[in-house]
Design a protein around this nucleic acid. Sequence first.
DNA 1: AAAACGGGGGC
DNA 2: GCCCCAGTTTT
Length: 218
Amino acid sequence: MNNRQMVEVIRLLEKELQKRELPIVSQLARERRAPFEILISTLLSLRTKDEVTAAASERLFALASTPQEMLRLAEEEISQAIYPVGFYRNKAGTIRHVCRELIVRFDSRVPETLEELLTLKGVGRKTANLVVSLGFNGLGLCVDTHVHRISNRMGYVRTKTPAETEFALREKLPAKHWSRFNTLLVAFGRNTCRPVSPLCSGCAVAAYCDRIGVTKSR
DNA sequence: AAAACGGGGGC
DNA sequence: GCCCCAGTTTT
């Protein structure tokens, strides 16, 4: 698959996912959110389903919407609010730590660069890229397992690891498509282009897919 | 490179 | 029961 085809795939997925109202849910919600809310909800999302994360985020933001307010909450209060996302000590602790850092080091704001975001403990490559991409409409390319799998399955790249995929995509895919690309592929990967038994019949972009590594499909 | 962090839901 | 989930840090 070449570049022009991949851009067409992005266009088709955009149309398809809107038409069928497939659950991009919290992703689309996040795009309208303040960077602080994107940062916090992304921290909540690690190894946790998106719907669970979305509901937990709402409950937490109802209690506190700024770093100062959130830092006033005890770890126990945060844990209670975000149930049942799991990783409570981890996530509640990280949230308080990040809030404190934002206040002390960044004038109570969320930093806008990948480098600065990565200095926050608990914020890794994917979280930082999402904040840049969705929070500041910047150039963030976040390669998770969905993006990695589908990029290879369609034959757009040939890579072993998500890190290699990120590098390859940064070289190959025009930056203006990055933000929508990862958002769309994650939604697509959950619903249609699943890890096993992808729903190939009726897939909107089947014509552009090489189906590499797909053995069983429906 | 692998383990640990944690709980719900799908199958 | 087993495996997976918009991951990151520590060993």
